[in-house]
Structures are given as C-alpha cells and as structure tokens.
Amino acid sequence: MSLRVAVLDDYQQVAESQADWSGRLPGAETVFFPRHIADPDELVAALAPFDVVVAMRERTAFPREVLRRLPRLRLLVTTGMRNASLDVAAAAEFGVLVCGTGGYPTGTSELTWAMILGLVRGVAGDDARVRAGGWQQRVAPDLSGEVLGIVGLGRLGTQVAAVGAAFGMDVVAWSPHLTAERAAEGGARLVGKDELFATAKVATVHMVLAEGTRGLIGDAELGAMRAGSYLVNTSRFGLIEEEALRRALAGDRPAGVGLDVFDVEPLPDGHWLRTAPRTLLSPHMGYVTEQTYRIFYGDAVEDIAAWQAGAPVRTL
C-alpha cells in the first residue's frame, strides 16, 4: 500500500508548487485540499485514508476526539513549531508523531506595518473616495515623535520596533516578564502596561496566546487609549477581550483597530466584525508570503522523507 499524504487548507492552491513532493516522496500519493473542512465528522471522513497529514498553522484543529478516529494516521506535520490547535499528548497516545517546520522570516512584522500605516493614513478610505470621484477630506496624523507601544517584545516585536525607530517614534514595550535590559536590546524602553496604553499613538500586539494572556487587553486598556490612537493585532485574537473591543468600537476610541487574526477562521458570514466601524481587517495574511510558504512546505516534505527513513526531525 503506497503512502498517502493529505495537505490541508491549501487556500491559494499553491502548495504543490512550493516543494518537490514527487521527487522527495517517490511513490507517495499526495492530495491537496483547497477547501477548509470545519466539521469534525467531515474532516475524519476525508482524512480516513491518509497516513500523513500536513496542517497549515492552526487552520484545522486536531483535538483528541478527531485524532482518536483516525487510526491510519501516523505522522502529523504542522507548519511552524507551535500549534495550539493540535493535542500533541493525544497524538502521542494514539501513535501519531507530530513534526513542525521552520518559517516566519519577516512577513508578520511587514504586515503589521502595512496595517499601522493603512490605519493612520486612512489608505482604504482614501482609495474608495478617489474611486467614487472624491478627493482630499482629511489631514493625516504624523508618526514621527509619537509613541509606539509594543505588547510583547520577542522576535516579531523587535522587528516592528526597528521600523518604528526608523520613523522617529518613541518605542516603548511591555510584557509580563520583560526587563529593562531586554527591552533596550530590542530597541525599546520598558514601561508599565497602563502607561503603554495611556500614551501610545499606536499599540501593537505580539504575544503568544496562553491561559495567562487570554483577554490581556480589555475595557481598562482600551478605555485608557488616547483619542486618535490605534490598536493593531497580528498575533492572536484571544489576546483582546472580544466584548470589550465591541464596546470600544461602539464608542469613540481607539480611532482605528487593525486585525489580521480572528477567534474563528475563516471569519463567518454575518460576524459583527465584518461591519464594525473604524476597523481594517485582513484574512490572517501575516505569514502568507512566498518565502514563508517555501520554507513551510519544503520543510514538511523533508519531515515526511526523514520519517520514512526512520530518522524524524523537528518533532514537537
């Protein structure tokens, strides 16, 4: 019986062209699924004939109940080295090896700045205005000399900080365990959480979603933001308390919110955020770049080949 490989959530239908699937996996049958399968029963039925599944980030969840119902599955490859939607302990219990990949050069930090500039300069609104026959109707604020507040100064936060400094912004940062020394190394000045939200012209979020960080930004933080300030989240939606965000957008601050991440993805039809005022929405495009995809799918193929050879690498 030949090896059967399922590649999930190939939205753009490019996965096959991003790696040498046939050359590196001779004799294997690889099937690419462009349509997201949200229903667990439908997912189990679709994946029942496969030995290997390649999952794109957290687009499709693999909880214990789904893994239990896939007795043929032996290898689960997730793009990246962290995936909160996979029950790794259950996978081990059912004899499924979980591997990851490299990735994430600069795509998310680049999109963060696209969203910051899009909000501050009102790019989407100006585009619509010109197409409708209009012209200048607003005066854009400046970023130079303003405060850029970074919530989470890891790899991505540090990349974002460097651009803020290049724009002449006063870069400040906070996270629960950030030290003044580490903040300085990342190109920022350590401040308290309250000060960050009270002073930032732009607050941008770059934290891992965990039990201790869920709902990190709520009524107090959003209410403390200055009039004319902006909030951008390209990390995980759960870092912001949803109802607090809804209340804030029904009020007068922040002046704009940029979101690349949502609690349910793809964002359901009729979701309140689709018509929320003062928002700039992106369909989780932070990591969706040519370079990142080449790394993701290339490493996935290498993981499968190494597993076939009995020497798996990049295990979670």
Rank of each mutant, 00 (worst) to 15 (best):
K193F: 04
D194W: 00
E195S: 07
F197T: 07
F197Y: 10
A198Q: 08
T199K: 13
A200H: 07
V202I: 09
V202D: 02
T204G: 04
T204L: 06
H206K: 03
M207E: 10
L209S: 06
L209D: 09
A210C: 02
E211H: 06
G212E: 10
T213K: 06
T213A: 04
R214L: 11
R214Q: 14
G215L: 01
G215A: 05
G218K: 04
G218V: 05
D219M: 00
D219P: 02
E221A: 11
L222A: 07
A224E: 04
R226L: 15
R226P: 00
R226F: 08
A227L: 14
V232K: 06
V232Y: 04
V232C: 01
V232N: 02
N233W: 00
T234H: 06
S235Q: 06
R236M: 05
R236Y: 03
R236F: 03
F237C: 08
F237N: 08
F237D: 14
I240C: 07
E242W: 10
A244G: 09
A244M: 08
A248R: 07
A248P: 04
L249D: 12
A250F: 05
R253T: 14
P254W: 08
G256W: 02
G258V: 03
L259R: 08
L259N: 06
D260P: 06
V261W: 03
F262N: 10
D263G: 09
D263F: 13
E265Q: 14
E265G: 10
P266R: 08
L267Y: 08
L267C: 09
D269A: 15
G270V: 04
R274Q: 12
R274W: 06
R274C: 02
T275S: 13
A276R: 11
R278H: 11
T279R: 04
L280T: 02
L281E: 11
S282F: 06
S282N: 14
H284N: 10
M285H: 12
Y287A: 15
T289A: 06
E290C: 01
E290V: 11
Q291P: 10
T292C: 14
T292N: 15
Y293E: 15
Y293N: 15
Y293V: 04
R294N: 04
I295P: 00
I295T: 12
F296K: 01
G298S: 11
D299K: 00
D299N: 05
D299C: 01
A300R: 02
V301E: 01
E302T: 07
D303N: 15
D303H: 01
I304M: 01
I304F: 00
I304L: 00
I304Y: 00
A305R: 10
A306W: 05
A306D: 12
Q308I: 02
Q308R: 15
A309K: 09
A311R: 13
V313K: 12
R314F: 02
R314N: 11
